[in-house]
Amino acid sequence: MSKSKANKKKSMAESAYGYLFIAPNLLGMLVFVIVPIFTSLLMSFTDWDLINAPRWVGLSNFTDKMVHDQQFWVSLKNTFVFSLLTIPLGIAAAFVIALLLNQSIKGVNLYRAAIFLPVGISMISISVIWRWILNTDLGILNYVLSLVNLQGAGWLSDEKYALFSVSAISIWKSVGFNMVILLAGLKGVPSHLYEAATIDGAGAWRRMTRITLPLITPSLFFVSIMSVIGSFQVFDLIYSTTSGGPGDSTRVIYYWVYQNGFKFFEMGYASALAWVVFIMLFAVTLLQMKFFGNKVNYEMD
């Protein structure tokens, strides 16, 4: 009898501490994440310039304004092109480097450190540096190209090249991140599997497709999720290299949301756009989970 009373008292104390320890974190989450998420959803049904009271406009931000917004469609297209360029190429490059660094050679740590360096530097600093390297008249890249008799170009000032150039900068910055994750995955593959496969006569290609790839799918899954999140939300790079130009050639969706919210003070419409980004990101992530879901192999953990 008294024992169960003591137990009850103990579990009450336990929940009290449970709530107490979680309280500050939860408060921060409520005020700066949960409430804003729902507020943003409500705002997407309004027309609001921050000064006058918000006006309820129903679904018209989505069904009318967005559908007829040329810039929205252009920015959507640019975001997709940017993603399709940066995600596969970025992961492939990182994978090749990781494979090379997984060999038993000297100086692996040094190489790894050099390639990882841009990951820790702010995108703004990196953009400033690359704007100088890619400069049309004085940039070192066009000079190097002229040495081998190639025609230089306005890498960031020509509509034909700008989106490719920012994609290249983005890959350059993030390849180190993907590389260290994939390298950690490769290190986790037990070497006796390769030895056994070699004894059984499996060639390099078969070892790659039957052992390496299946066993590093958790790492591949993680870098692909992170790459999608990063490329859908690219902003700093665009802001500080091209500001969406020349023309509309590098205007991506995140930049368009920012402009609507904080340049044109269309808070309602900007919220609607932000929700569209969220829904697309959510859908793509679900697709990735489906794609990797039956392939992710945790057996070796």
Binding site: P36, I37, I229, V257, A274, V277, F278
Partner: peptide, 10 residues
């Protein structure tokens, strides 16, 4: 999973 842009304005 919610992008920063969603919570930014509120």
């Amino acid at each position: 999973m919610v992008p920063l842009m969603v919570t930014l304005i509120p």
